[in-house]
């Protein structure tokens, strides 16, 4: 359970320590990629809690979503339309939904365990 959190912390530490900066014009792409990655991460957690987790789906979804989001942003830049907003919107909505589902699952789990505790 704690391993992913440790991984996240290690990643952040690594990123901060290497002091890599990407050019200003590409920060849009990175931000959308981060959003896609977060979405996939929360989707994976939800799937895990719902016991429908599939590693292939998770890993492929992670990379595919990032690439799709970045290419959408790229297309948007070249078409002159802020297409990356579409990706932001989609990922944002899904992020909220996933987190809501996770919250509900955790709440039910918590309440059932509490009931069990009271019964015993």
């Amino acid at each position: 359970m704690w391993l992913p959190v440790i991984g996240l912390i290690i990643g952040i530490m690594l990123g901060l320590m290497t002091e890599i900066r990407i050019p200003e014009e590409y920060s849009n792409y990175l931000s959308i990629a981060v959003l896609a990655a977060l979405d996939t991460l929360f989707g994976g957690i939800r799937a895990y809690l719902q016991n429908i987790y599939d590693e292939k789906v998770f890993v492929s979804g992670f990379f595919f979503n990032i690439i799709l989001a970045a290419s959408l942003a790229f297309l948007g830049v070249h078409l002159g339309v802020d297409l990356y907003l579409a990706a932001v919107f989609a990922f944002g909505v899904r992020l909220f939904q996933n987190i809501a589902v996770i919250r509900r699952i955790l709440l039910t789990k918590w309440s059932t365990s509490k009931e069990k505790l009271e019964k015993s």
Partner: peptide, 24 residues
Amino acid sequence: MKISFTLIAAIVGFMIAIQFQTVK
């Protein structure tokens, strides 16, 4: 399962850190 999850979490963390540093 844990390994891939951890790896992807690390990648996400890395990306967030870079984005943070770029924007800041």
